[in-house]
Every structure is written in structure tokens, then in C-alpha cells.
Design a protein around this nucleic acid. Structure first.
Lengths: 202, 202
DNA sequence: AGACAAAGCGGACCGCAGTCCGTTTTTATT
DNA sequence: AATAAAAACGGACTGCGGTCCGCTTTGTCT
């Protein structure tokens, strides 16, 4: 009679306990509510815990840190957006020529990063960087660049193109340099064309 | 007998009191010492105050916030660097053709931003952004782009080129994408040439 | 020199992020 | 159903950033 420990599946997450799942849901919902009520900066961890009806320790067990919680909040919209990129209507989604997709990608990403600027900021290191967003966007831009026919250090170029789409940069441009969203879009288009055209018209 | 208030010079800073100056010096020195002893993250405001032999309130009076203090620390090296750009030896300083200066600018900025990554991070909003550094570098890159003969939205292009030189981006590239410094340099050169060449070979 | 503002100073105090550990709930096993 | 291990929970507690306000120093005007 061996203990039927049916092998841990090597890295399969041990499955979440039901109460844990319930609490996570409650916490996310509470956080969302508080964000829309007090703004991102007005949300304290104690408040989130209280609103969800759990102890503070629970919040940290689930989300590790304030940044982690904010990142989790972010992931919601991020997921929907990724779906739009992977299988939504063109030109953001598949079906349009890769250059058009790249331009649309920039416009869309700009909007997102401006809209969630405060959340992204609050998510700090766990936010824009190191999380799903970075690897997904980087991967996608690399893919599009290749499709367009760009030669060279694709990985570097992808990151370089993504950099000016970062929330911090956009915020600086719109707030302190007074650049309009329309101008940002035109600028992006121009930048992309410059980067790309070197390989197209040799 | 009019009060010889010899007009406030309209916005001339009211001149710093001697004790204030002394304390500022002491604080900066203390902060620097602590940074090199405990690392940026290990520096607490209380410690800085204690080490300088003043009260905590004084620290905040001089530097407003922790970020402000870090920004002040940063300004030291920043100033030296600006001097090198404005009047140092080519190709970073004047004398070389503008394209070479632009390439050298990128390499140099990269090094700085990587070297002081933790300080920049700690200086947060008061650091890379909104402070001396941003307007100076932006101005300089705009100037070089113009000299090179780039047409278009120079202000936007300057910011877009500066974005991938930001400490956060560089850190991501070197740490999680494992891109070597050498490759970053080559990438920068390639990026700049792509952006520039569109206007040069029409 | 004396006096009077203004600027500077200090450290007690507050709020929030994050930790710790004894207690409770869930789930697998018999 | 009983049991036991693992996972989750809660809330008191700590440390740090930042504020506040009564006291002291500095500089100026007579």
C-alpha cells in the first residue's frame, strides 16, 4: 500500500485552496472598489483588508506587497488587451500588414499606459517591468519587426521602440512638454517608419 | 529715511543663511558617507540626520523628501557630466561631427544611468524626470539632431531616443534580457543611424 | 548695543507598508 | 466520521517616511 501520492506533476501549482480563492476574489474586488473611490494613492493595505473582511496578513500572503496587489489589478485589463492583440480585429489584431499592426500597436499601448499611469506607477517594479506585460509586448514587437523585414538586433530594437511608450515617458511628454496625444501618435508613426525603412529602402 | 530694502531683485533667491549652508553641506556629506557604507536602500532619513548631527526636521527643510535628497546627491555627478558634454574633449564634447557626438552621448549616458541606477531609482520622480537631467539631455539631443540635419518632430524624436537610455530600461535589458553593455552600445549606434538616415538618404 | 522679525531647527508624533507567530480552516487519508 | 498535516488566517508589532509646532539662531534696522 504505497501512499498514492500521484506525483506532483513537476511544477504544477498545488492548486489553490477554496477559501484562498474566495479571499483573493474578495480582495481584488475590494481593491478595485477602493481605487475607484479614493484613487490609487488613497488605497491603503489596511483599508483593502478591512473592505474585504480579512486580516492584513492575508493580503500579503496573496499579493506579497502593495506593488504586487497593484500589478494584479493591472493584469485584469492587460489580459483583455492581449486578447485583442492576438485575436481581435485588425489592424491591432491579425489580418493587417505587419507595419500597420505595429503602428496600431503603438497607439493602443500609448492609450493604455496613459490611462493606467497611476496604477503602473504604483505597481512599480512589479508593474510595467518584469511582469507579463513586458515579455508579451516585447515578444509581439519582435515578431512584427521580423515580419516587416527588419534586420539587425531585433531584441534590442524592440525594447528601444517600446521604451518611449512607457507610462513615465508619456506622462512627461504630455504633462511637462505639453505634447498632445495626436502628436504622440504621429511621432510614433514617424519613429517606426524611420527604424523600419533603413532595411526597406537600402 | 526710506527703509533701504534695496529691491528684492524680483525672484532672486533670498540668499541662504550661514547655518543653513553649513547644515546642507554636512547633510550631503553624511548622506554620501551613508550611501557608500550601507548602499542606497540602507540609508534612512533618521540616520542621515543623526550622522550630520542635526534634527530630522532640518533634513526635510533642506531636501523636502527622501527623493529630494537623493536627487541632490545625483546632481553632483550630473553637473560634472554636463560640463564634459558642453566643454569637454570630443567626441562627447564639442569639436566632433554631430553624429559622432550623438553616438558618444548615448554611450556615456548609458554608463551613467547604469552606474547610478539605484540612486536614480531612489530619487524617483525628482530624479531622472523633471529635474535638471531631463531638460539638459533633451535640449542637447534636440540640438544634435538638428545639426545632423534631421527634419520632423525634433522634440518628440529626442525624447524617443532618450527613452531607451533610461536606467529602468537599461537595467531590464542587462539583468533580465542578458544583453551585454557592448551590445547595448552597438544597438544605440544602429538605432541612431536608422532614425537619422531617413533624412540623409531620401 | 539692543530689539525685532524671519528663517532655521529639533524631535515628538502620525500613518502606512511589511513581518511574525499562535490559531483556525481546509483537504487528503483511513 | 475521525485525524493529522498543510495551508491559510488575523492582528499585534516594528521601522521608516513625513509632518507639526514651540524654541533658537541669524541678520537687519535704529
Amino acid at each position: 500500500m504505497s501512499t498514492t501520492r500521484l506525483l506532483p506533476l513537476l511544477g504544477a501549482p498545488p492548486a489553490e485552496r477554496s477559501d484562498a480563492a474566495r479571499n483573493r476574489e474578495a480582495l481584488l474586488q475590494a481593491a478595485e472598489a477602493l481605487v475607484s473611490r479614493c484613487g490609487v494613492d488613497g488605497v491603503t493595505m489596511d483599508a483593502v483588508a478591512a473592505q474585504a473582511g480579512v486580516g492584513k496578513g492575508t493580503v500579503y500572503r496573496r499579493f506579497v506587497s502593495r506593488e504586487g496587489l497593484m500589478a494584479a489589478l493591472l493584469n485584469h485589463s492587460e489580459t483583455a488587451w492581449q486578447a485583442a492583440v492576438l485575436s481581435g480585429p485588425p489592424p491591432l489584431g491579425p489580418g493587417a500588414p505587419p507595419l500597420d499592426r505595429l503602428l496600431a500597436f503603438g497607439h493602443s499601448r500609448m492609450e493604455i499606459n496613459l490611462k493606467h499611469g497611476d496604477l503602473i506607477q504604483a505597481a512599480g517594479h512589479a508593474g510595467a517591468r518584469a511582469y507579463a506585460a513586458v515579455s508579451f509586448t516585447a515578444m509581439h514587437v519582435r515578431y512584427l519587426l521580423t515580419e516587416v523585414g527588419v534586420r539587425g538586433d531585433i531584441a534590442f530594437l524592440a525594447t528601444a521602440l517600446l521604451a518611449p511608450l512607457e507610462s513615465v515617458i508619456l506622462e512627461q511628454q504630455t504633462r511637462t512638454e505639453h505634447i498632445s496625444l495626436e502628436r504622440l501618435r504621429l511621432g510614433w508613426d514617424d519613429l517606426v517608419r524611420r527604424v523600419v525603412s533603413a532595411d526597406l529602402t537600402p
